[in-house]
Amino acid sequence: MRRFWKLILRDRLAAIGLVIVVLLAVVALWPAAWLPANPTRANPALRLKPPVFAGGTWGHALGTDNLGRDLLSRTVAGTKVSVVIALVAVLISATLGIGLGVAAGYFGGAVDSLIMRLVDIQLAFPLLLLIIAVIAVVGSSLPILILLLGISGWAQYARLVRAETLRVRAQEFVEASRALGTGSLRLVVKHVLPNVSTTIIVVGTFEIARVFLLESAVSFLGLGVQPPTPSWGTMIADGRDYVYEGWWIATVPGVAIVLAVLAFNFLGDGLRDVLDPKTR
């Protein structure tokens, strides 16, 4: 474990990524009561105040938006929303993918070809359009958004886990256990998961970055996280109408997204080099 941290920290980009990820975690866990202002309370008297580095005051360090809401508080609150969505969505797709991958590899035959066809279909489907279509019908809510984003990523895990399951299943001790009539499914799972866990962690890290981008795009279109809940995507959409008199409204949450995506991509690259050198 100590060797692991040493290797990660020696990789400069991965170390930067790790620092930002830790920072994101702190921001996401930041209690609402400790925010400088209520992220959803509008105050017309404080409209369009610039950030402190552009002539504003420390009272609203990152400025205020078109309704006079404090952008620092909104970005922090938005971080919480985006991080929770991304984590749960990636957890859903990993669970789904691992389950289906084991099933495909273990049962083989018709189950396998059905699941692999589903993988192909999933990879051929225009995701953003599918998400838009479903939200157009059922309306947007947080659980639906998370579920859709979660379903969007399972195919990669399924492929990975299936291949490993096939390999493990072909080994003699599994054959032997099946001949003895003991539960070989449990045995397979027990031997598959440790072998794929590092690759799954690497894939999951990149997936978090991908979900950040996808969720912000859906929210930007007004189909994801709904107001008054702040999210990075909706905040950028707010700023779109104020490019002349309030450039910071879109810029502040936008920088937050870029940093978050960069951090997870850097960390993913670093983790892959350390944990999984063969897939480079």
Partner: peptide, 10 residues
């Protein structure tokens, strides 16, 4: 790492 819509607004 930059969302296309954010790049567009910038």
């Amino acid at each position: 790492a930059i969302p296309s819509f954010f790049l567009g607004i910038v």
